[in-house]
Amino acid sequence: MGKRISRASSDTVWLAVLLMPALLLPVALILMPALCTFVNGCMQDVTFMPRRWAGLANYARLVQDPALFHSLRFTLLFIAVSVPLELACGLLLALLMQVQSPLRGMLRALVLIPWAIPAAIAGRVWELIYSYNWGPANYLVKLTGAPAVNWLGSSTGAFLAIVIADLWKTVPFVAIILLAGLSAIPEHLYRQAEVDGASFIRRFVAITLPLLRPVMIVAILFRTIDALRIFDLIYILTSGGPGGATSSLSLLGYTYFVGGDFGYGSAISTLIFLIALLVALLVVRIGRFGSSMR
């Protein structure tokens, strides 16, 4: 009996010794700063001025701020355009990677390259690609006979430029996730359908898409939250320009932090967090709802 108790209590000690270090830094350097930021959203906190409670003043300012409205619209539009495109291209790429072929291994290796390159470097490369006078993007455009596009200097051009560069960087990730989902679909389902005379497209719609649904939802969740906080690529490609047209919410928050207005920057960050939370709950909810219908 005594032995048993000492074993149980030593288990507790081990639990603490091995688990605590894993929790310590994330709590101290992720959770704490985040909570402080949320509280700070209700503070007047500007460099060289005493910090004081401001209630909802920052949020009142948020609601009336045209720059914030712009940022919010850009970010939501970016999500609405890029996430569906990422999913479509990612699915195509995943299907390609699944086909039995001598080239399969090569494709599966190469797909990791855009994913593995630092976003900052990808941003620099795409900045060069979009160069107005001699970038390859306009070189291709001019080959088709169309006039050169002012990629980074016009608001539509910059939006497209960011979407395309982001696609290049993120489609591989989506494809890898979807490939795992595709590989989990039992092959005998396809054989059965083939025996029943179902066509290529019919098999895709009736078997692949529904069985891929849970993985799709994971991919949508990850990509939406990631697109919501997009920063690196925009910081390098346009710095939010021209005239704030491509300033994402994260970039706007960053400019206030750097500019010394911590209170307002915190309010914007809190807004981003709340949207992320809402998106997560919504995606999970829709996902569950769909599967309970089946």
């Binding site: 101290a28 992720i30 967090f273």
Partner: peptide, 24 residues
Amino acid sequence: AVLLMILSLSMFPQICIAGYLYRI
């Protein structure tokens, strides 16, 4: 609860952490 907390930490947008992380 611990596992979920750890998971949710990875969902925090970086900008929500950056400001105070700098101060710390």
